[in-house]
Design a protein around this nucleic acid. Sequence first.
DNA 1: TCGAGTTGGTTGAACGCTCAACAAAATCGG
DNA 2: CCGATTTTGTTGAGCGTTCAACCAACTCGA
Lengths: 157, 157
Amino acid sequence: MAVMTRWLDADEQRTWRAFLTATRALMETLDRELQRDAGMPHAYYEILVRLSEAPDRQLRMSDLAQVTGSSRSRLSHAAARLEEAGWLRRQECPTDRRGQLAILTDAGFAALAAAAPGHVEGVRRHLFDPLSPAQVDQLRRISETLADHLADDRTAS
Amino acid sequence: MAVMTRWLDADEQRTWRAFLTATRALMETLDRELQRDAGMPHAYYEILVRLSEAPDRQLRMSDLAQVTGSSRSRLSHAAARLEEAGWLRRQECPTDRRGQLAILTDAGFAALAAAAPGHVEGVRRHLFDPLSPAQVDQLRRISETLADHLADDRTAS
DNA sequence: TCGAGTTGGTTGAACGCTCAACAAAATCGG
DNA sequence: CCGATTTTGTTGAGCGTTCAACCAACTCGA
């Protein structure tokens, strides 16, 4: 038997649309700022950040895809671009002959160091500053709940 | 004098990364579901929704761009695609010879009607169901605050 | 009324992402 | 040990978005 759709009520509609508007505007603004000031999209910035935090500034491609939340295909394309820019190089993995290590170059680290202050300032200005400390805390809990739930969906499939 | 960067502290980092992970996963999941089940990306779904709610199911291109939060260029390209699909048609505006009216076709309305239940179910499952009623309320306030703030930034430039 | 500036909309190139297909190496089960 | 399966990573085509450039029509002030 067909299941009746549980439509969104007026409050839920309002929440959903505000959420869409806010997240889209936020990410587009940060992306644009980063592109303008540092010549890289936000996704590439995140790759550089994760590499910069890793031991020896290097990670397996798969692990890097994992932590940046991207597909292997996406990361592969991105790595090719970042390699062209001289910000990253790839090297065969000694312990697994299928593997590739993504390694942040000095130029890549420098590009990240140049981009970071402006980007962090943007995150503050557009996300943290407008919210009260209590709201920041709420946002963290909400985000962690959603992220956990979505991760479960992935592993369950 | 150079201004010192106000870096994110550990809590802020955690919040920011959880937020990134959650919103990215949420939007990608919904986009994928919509693409799989209805053959359209989420952005196009939103265009159809807004048109379906407008008087006579039609809107000026500019107004449609406004409410869907997209650039005029983006909407122009999207409208071309939607027109190919037979879900939308464009017609000259009687009151402004520069203008174009975007009009939802019957086929477009039908496609929307077919896509909506599955999509709403996805929004429920991935967003509303995992959150408590209090959190949904918090998320609404947070989103509205951020959206207002970001809209101010736009108009101020 | 006429010129300058603004608004509405489109276009094409460049770019990033998705998806499916693929190849090579590792792992697992019998 | 060997065949089947899984994991790792890349590739190319197709699509959606951005950005800058552009034209046409509207508006407004002198």
